[in-house]
Amino acid sequence: KTVHVDGVEYRFNNPEEADKFVKRLVKEKNGNVEVRGDTYHVE
């Protein structure tokens, strides 16, 4: 899984860790998540 945040790319081998990371980011930023294939885009 890959997570894109503000143009920075984070790669996770463990999908659960990627999910936790995304949830935390969305809370912090009050942002939205767009999923494209295996990539999460957080804005």
Score class of each variant (00 low, 15 high):
residue 2 T to Y: 07
residue 33 V to Y: 08
residue 25 L to G: 02
residue 42 V to K: 06
residue 1 K to A: 13
residue 31 G to C: 15
residue 36 R to W: 08
residue 27 K to D: 13
residue 18 A to K: 03
residue 22 V to P: 01
residue 40 Y to R: 03
residue 25 L to E: 06
residue 15 P to G: 06
residue 20 K to D: 15
residue 17 E to M: 03
residue 15 P to V: 10
residue 20 K to R: 12
residue 29 K to S: 14
residue 7 G to E: 01
residue 4 H to F: 15
residue 1 K to M: 14
residue 18 A to I: 03
residue 5 V to R: 00
residue 17 E to C: 13
residue 24 R to K: 14
residue 6 D to M: 05
residue 41 H to M: 11
residue 29 K to F: 14
residue 6 D to H: 05
residue 17 E to K: 02
residue 38 D to R: 00
residue 10 Y to A: 00
residue 39 T to S: 13
residue 14 N to I: 03
residue 34 E to L: 12
residue 7 G to D: 04
residue 38 D to Y: 03
residue 29 K to A: 10
residue 14 N to H: 04
residue 24 R to E: 14
residue 10 Y to C: 08
residue 22 V to M: 09
residue 14 N to Y: 02
residue 26 V to S: 05
residue 14 N to W: 02
residue 38 D to T: 03
residue 12 F to H: 02
residue 8 V to T: 05
residue 40 Y to K: 07
residue 29 K to W: 14
residue 2 T to H: 04
residue 36 R to C: 14
residue 20 K to Q: 13
residue 25 L to R: 00
residue 41 H to I: 14
residue 3 V to Q: 00
residue 21 F to P: 01
residue 32 N to W: 15
residue 23 K to H: 08
residue 31 G to I: 13
residue 30 N to C: 15
residue 25 L to P: 03
residue 22 V to Y: 08
residue 1 K to L: 14
residue 28 E to D: 11
residue 19 D to Y: 13
residue 28 E to G: 06
residue 5 V to Q: 00
residue 21 F to L: 02
residue 30 N to H: 10
residue 10 Y to H: 03
residue 43 E to I: 15
residue 12 F to S: 01
residue 30 N to L: 10
residue 19 D to F: 10
residue 27 K to Q: 13
residue 3 V to M: 02
residue 19 D to M: 11
residue 43 E to D: 11
residue 28 E to C: 15
residue 31 G to T: 10
residue 18 A to F: 07
residue 24 R to N: 13
residue 21 F to Y: 03
residue 43 E to L: 14
residue 25 L to S: 03
residue 21 F to I: 01
residue 25 L to C: 02
residue 41 H to R: 05
residue 10 Y to M: 04
residue 16 E to M: 06
residue 42 V to A: 07
residue 29 K to D: 06
residue 39 T to E: 12
residue 37 G to Q: 07
residue 35 V to M: 10
residue 23 K to C: 15
residue 4 H to E: 10
residue 41 H to N: 09
residue 7 G to Y: 01
residue 38 D to P: 06
residue 14 N to D: 13
residue 12 F to Y: 00
residue 35 V to G: 06
residue 18 A to T: 01
residue 24 R to M: 13
residue 24 R to A: 14
residue 34 E to C: 15
residue 27 K to A: 14
residue 33 V to Q: 04
residue 11 R to L: 06
residue 27 K to R: 07
residue 8 V to K: 11
residue 10 Y to Q: 01
residue 18 A to M: 05
residue 6 D to F: 06
residue 29 K to I: 11
residue 10 Y to K: 00
residue 9 E to H: 02
residue 18 A to D: 01
residue 5 V to M: 02
residue 40 Y to V: 12
residue 20 K to P: 02
residue 18 A to G: 00
residue 17 E to S: 02
residue 37 G to W: 14
residue 16 E to C: 13
residue 41 H to G: 06
residue 19 D to G: 02
residue 28 E to N: 07
residue 5 V to K: 01
residue 28 E to L: 08
residue 20 K to C: 15
residue 37 G to H: 10
residue 33 V to S: 06
residue 37 G to T: 10
residue 7 G to W: 00
residue 16 E to Q: 07
residue 42 V to N: 09
residue 43 E to P: 06
residue 2 T to K: 04
residue 23 K to A: 13
residue 9 E to V: 13
residue 38 D to L: 03
residue 14 N to G: 02
residue 42 V to D: 08
residue 26 V to F: 11
residue 18 A to Y: 10
residue 20 K to T: 12
residue 43 E to S: 14
residue 21 F to D: 03
residue 5 V to C: 14
residue 34 E to M: 12
residue 5 V to N: 01
residue 7 G to H: 02
residue 23 K to N: 11
residue 42 V to Q: 07
residue 34 E to T: 14
residue 31 G to F: 14
residue 15 P to K: 12
residue 13 N to L: 08
residue 31 G to D: 08
residue 12 F to C: 04
residue 32 N to Q: 12
residue 4 H to M: 15
residue 4 H to D: 02
residue 7 G to Q: 01
residue 36 R to A: 07
residue 16 E to I: 05
residue 28 E to W: 10
residue 41 H to D: 10
residue 36 R to P: 07
residue 29 K to P: 05
residue 20 K to G: 07
residue 26 V to D: 10
residue 27 K to F: 09
residue 15 P to D: 11
residue 1 K to Q: 08
residue 12 F to E: 01
residue 7 G to T: 00
residue 31 G to A: 14
residue 10 Y to L: 02
residue 29 K to N: 13
residue 2 T to P: 02
residue 7 G to V: 01
residue 11 R to K: 12
residue 15 P to T: 10
residue 12 F to T: 00
residue 3 V to F: 02
residue 2 T to M: 05
residue 23 K to L: 11
residue 42 V to P: 05
residue 5 V to E: 00
residue 37 G to Y: 12
residue 2 T to L: 08
residue 43 E to R: 09
residue 16 E to W: 06
residue 19 D to Q: 08
residue 41 H to P: 09
residue 32 N to F: 12
residue 23 K to Y: 03
residue 2 T to Q: 02
